[in-house]
Design a protein around this nucleic acid. Structure first.
Lengths: 184, 184
DNA sequence: GTCTATACTGTGATAGAC
DNA sequence: GTCTATCACAGTATAGAC
């Protein structure tokens, strides 16, 4: 039986893998070993539980965006952003997965709106730099591709699951090619 | 009021954007201008409607996989595959979006299992060529990134929505960098 | 072939005992 | 703070009139 402060983590796992709509409070209560009513004692609604599950992820994203917007538009600044961003993706992979894959299904949920606005700010910054549609596309592929990969890591792989520490340099290199290349 | 053969297309749009679980038969019936019972007259269950909505996409994917597995592992063969693949992504963007983003939420649905097996075959082919975990990661990012971008195109963009014909060369170049690079 | 009406199940949320 | 019991409602699916 899980303690109440573990509920957001348990909920996050299910919201990420099965989807918010497809995950019932009963599912979460069962996984936590408590009753549905007990879950709703700590979080007044399913939506508030989602908010609690995503709070740390949105805070981390906000910190990244704030520091990023203070930088100039040089390649080295992009590379610095990238390192931060990869760490963020690795640490908050389930939350990011929800933002990317369920953003429009959950578009009227407060915390999702907040996250969408933050992603739009990053994307806008990248677009202003390159000015081209291609830069926008590159950023979208990098974000969504990484989010998918980290949440689904191992689904299509026969071998052992992907290890975060093994993944970090690979992800940094690939995302670097996408969004922090030298200008052509 | 839509004709019955338009129902799969209408359903596909909603399943892709709002998610399968979050889309009710009532939503689909309303969008089609018919009653819920009428939808269920043509498709015996919600799951069968999903199957009809995804049928063309899975068929197209199967054709691509079959032709691809007949090829050798040269760079030119990869490039040929890529051209086919980009066309497939552009034409079936909503279906691909469902496969990528809702695959594990729908893992016990027959047509999703079929699609998962096909994607695993492509991924396995790519892995065999490169042999490295990085090749697998590159493929995952390319697939999921493109799927997200095409389904969500314009969500984070202030300007006009992305045009498929404008997008094709850009997508081909970016995915080419990811999965059809010259060997290093 | 489309509709209204209905059966049945599961949902989010609340009340109240302990 | 956790539980059982219950509420009102929406979900899929079916029955039967037309």
């Amino acid at each position: 039986m899980a303690t109440p402060d573990e509920l957001p983590r348990i909920a996050l796992e299910q919201f990420s893998s099965a989807g918010y709509a497809a995950t019932s409070l009963q599912n979460i209560a069962d996984a936590a070993g408590v009753s549905k009513a007990s879950v709703l004692y700590h979080f007044a609604s399913k939506e508030q539980l989602l908010g609690a599950a995503l709070a740390r992820t949105v805070d981390a994203l906000e910190a990244i965006v704030a520091s990023f917007e203070g930088l100039d538009t040089s390649l080295s600044a992009r590379r610095a952003f990238l390192a931060e961003f990869v760490d963020f993706l690795l640490e908050h992979r389930l939350g990011v997965h929800i933002f990317v894959n369920q953003a429009d299904a959950l578009e009227d949920v407060a915390i999702i709106e907040r996250a969408n606005a933050l992603v739009a700010r990053i994307a806008g910054h990248f677009e202003r730099q390159g000015g081209s549609m291609e830069e926008q596309v590159r950023f979208g592929i990098a974000l969504a591709g990484a989010a998918y990969l980290l949440a689904a890591a191992g689904r299509f792989r026969q071998g052992p699951a992907l290890d975060p520490d093994e993944l970090r340099p690979v992800l940094t290199r690939i995302l670097g090619e996408l969004i922090a290349r030298p200008a052509r």
